[in-house]
Simulated assay, not measured.
Amino acid sequence: MKIIAMIPARYAASRFPGKLMQDLGGKSVIRRTYEATVATHLFDDVFVVTDSDIIFNEISSNGGKAIMSQKEHECGSDRIAEAVKGMDIDVVINVQGDEPFTEKESLEKLIEVFKEDTTKKVDLASLMVHITDTDEINNPNTVKVIVDHNNFALYFSRSPIPYPRDPNAGVTYYKHKGVYAFRKQAILDFYRLPMLPLEASEKIECIRYLEYGKRIKMVETTIQGVEIDTPEDLERAKKLWK
């Protein structure tokens, strides 16, 4: 089984433009993420795929592998699909460019899903983290996921799901970490299928897979990491890096 990692990287992020080129301990955020992914030694290859000359040059001039997108893309999955279309691979893992603390343990769990899935019933695998903080549960920047008893995703939302009508029901809330593992065909299907209303409303790309009947296996991890979405997140990351 040939497994690669792709790190989609836009320069013009809506909430924090240029965040991937911000300094983190003497190197850019995107370079830290790339090097952390390579350092796991889990992949046959690792690429940054970008629409930015700045990011492309940042990776390639420092000995990394970068691919320039040929088209404009709405989301990271589309960017990856274009890049892998002609590649001889089985599984591609999407590592978010704004997660410089990417670590081996969680990625290994995703890869194991496909090694165990001999009947190929799983189209995607992704990570989730148990959360208890009320502010985080209600924060629309935190994507929540609910799963069935086999940990297949039922739905993703920026709203708190499930709604706590009975606060004593013993519900566990999960935050979706935006690290995905795809079978190659699943991400190619995503690329050609149009966005539907649920995805358009929530602005959560993995909802498209559910709307078209794909199966997403969720894997629980205890490792939160730091996603750099705001300048405040960057300051937290700098303290953690020290």
Score class of each variant (00 low, 15 high):
94 N>A: 05
71 K>Q: 11
82 E>G: 04
74 E>M: 14
72 E>G: 11
128 M>N: 09
68 M>K: 13
65 K>C: 10
87 M>T: 04
64 G>R: 07
57 N>G: 09
74 E>A: 12
99 E>V: 11
112 E>L: 12
50 T>C: 03
119 T>M: 10
99 E>D: 03
89 I>N: 07
75 C>H: 15
77 S>V: 07
58 E>R: 06
53 D>P: 00
97 G>Y: 00
56 F>A: 09
124 L>I: 10
116 E>L: 14
128 M>R: 01
96 Q>F: 01
103 E>Q: 02
55 I>P: 09
75 C>W: 15
56 F>Y: 15
97 G>K: 08
81 A>T: 05
64 G>I: 13
118 T>H: 14
123 D>G: 07
75 C>P: 08
82 E>C: 06
89 I>G: 05
74 E>F: 12
95 V>F: 07
115 K>W: 11
50 T>Q: 04
122 V>M: 00
100 P>N: 03
107 L>R: 02
57 N>C: 04
106 S>W: 07
107 L>C: 09
56 F>Q: 03
67 I>F: 08
110 L>I: 07
129 V>I: 13
104 K>V: 00
110 L>G: 08
87 M>A: 01
86 G>I: 03
60 S>I: 14
73 H>W: 11
117 D>P: 11
103 E>N: 02
104 K>P: 10
61 S>L: 14
57 N>T: 00
71 K>Y: 15
106 S>I: 03
92 V>K: 03
51 D>K: 00
107 L>A: 10
64 G>S: 11
50 T>R: 06
97 G>D: 02
69 S>V: 12
50 T>V: 07
82 E>P: 04
54 I>A: 07
55 I>C: 07
84 V>Q: 08
112 E>N: 14
119 T>K: 14
66 A>R: 06
107 L>F: 08
59 I>P: 08
113 V>I: 15
